[in-house]
Design a protein around this nucleic acid. Structure first.
Length: 290
DNA sequence: TAGTTGCCTTCGAG
DNA sequence: ACTCGAAGGCAAC
């Protein structure tokens, strides 16, 4: 299937897949191969044409966030020169709509890890506990179904390189397996309620919850704060906070819970209903050296 | 080459 | 309530 991408509603496949929101896409030749839910599909983009194969167009459009009106998003979040620069540089970066289950486990694994290491862990988990799918002559692995991780032994999980996250993954998988987590319900709940619910799961703090809400549960106002966003705020948005607070932030290695909430709340109120979009542009801009 | 630093943080103890 | 340190291991420098 081919989709026309015109400049008034841009899409940039490469940036969207490389900016660190999803961890299981790989480029082979000129095609990007991905596994979302239990489908393997591939995509490539040349100038104004986006090609997608092996999946229906409704799913692909939703997954790639193509239903978001980016001109509207940009006009809402472009509040200052710095975010404008980030938006211009990475125009067409979109928030993916990932599978909530995979997203949940991914961000439990993501704590205190860099992106390369996260990819490595999730690849191990998928290879060991997922199903093998052959496509275009390559082997892919679906993300493990809930039951597979709920049944997994601590030792098997440990061998995937999860470290201290092992028990969080197992406990969370068991909680989901006992159907104590309803993702469709979370999607309908408001931001604060859904966040509280997610944070009741072991291994899910405020940062992980914000990522899961943004990347898989349609909460586009969610504003995850990691070390890069904290850096961006210190450099470019310090004037929005008190002198003492900024001084404290510069000294501290890690964020206290209340400090996290203060920064995240700033993002949500300053950038508005699409704060999550602003966050991804700032994150990518800061990480790639601006 | 080998060592160090840092990583899209969370949890639990004090 | 709030601070502080520990927790795999990979990868970039």
């Amino acid at each position: 299937m081919k989709i026309k991408v015109d400049p008034s509603n841009p899409f940039n496949l490469e940036v969207t897949l490389c900016c660190g929101q999803a961890f299981r896409w790989e480029k082979k030749g000129e095609w990007w191969y991905g596994v979302a839910s239990d489908r393997v599909f591939k995509s490539r983009q040349t100038s104004g044409i986006l090609e997608i194969e092996n999946v229906d167009s409704d799913f692909a459009k939703r997954y790639f966030g193509l239903n978001d009106e980016l001109d509207n998003v940009y006009s809402r979040i472009c509040k200052d020169r710095y975010i404008k620069r980030a938006v211009e540089m990475f125009s067409g970066l979109r928030i993916l709509r990932q599978d909530p289950w995979e997203c949940l486990i991914s961000y439990i694994c993501a704590t205190y890890k860099n992106i390369a290491a996260i990819k490595h862990m999730l690849f191990n988990v998928s290879r060991r506990f997922g199903d093998k799918v052959r496509f275009d002559g390559f082997d892919f692995y679906t993300f493990p179904p809930v039951e597979n991780l709920a049944r997994a032994s601590l030792n098997d999980l440990l061998q995937c390189g999860l470290g201290y996250r092992t028990k969080y993954v197992q406990e969370t998988a068991r909680t989901v397996a006992e159907s104590h987590v309803d993702f469709d319900h979370l999607r309908k709940m408001d931001y604060k309620e859904a966040k509280r619910e997610l944070m009741s799961l072991p291994g899910v703090g405020p940062k992980a919850a914000d990522c899961i809400l943004l990347f898989s549960l349609e909460k586009l106002q969610s504003f995850p704060v990691d070390v890069w966003i904290r850096r961006a705020i210190l450099r470019h948005y310090a004037a929005h906070f008190s002198r003492e607070f900024i001084a404290r932030l510069r000294e501290k290695e890690s964020l206290a819970g209340s400090d996290y909430e203060k920064l995240s709340m700033f993002g949500r109120t300053y950038f508005g209903e699409f704060a999550g979009y602003a966050q991804e542009y700032l994150f990518h801009y800061e990480r790639t050296g601006g």
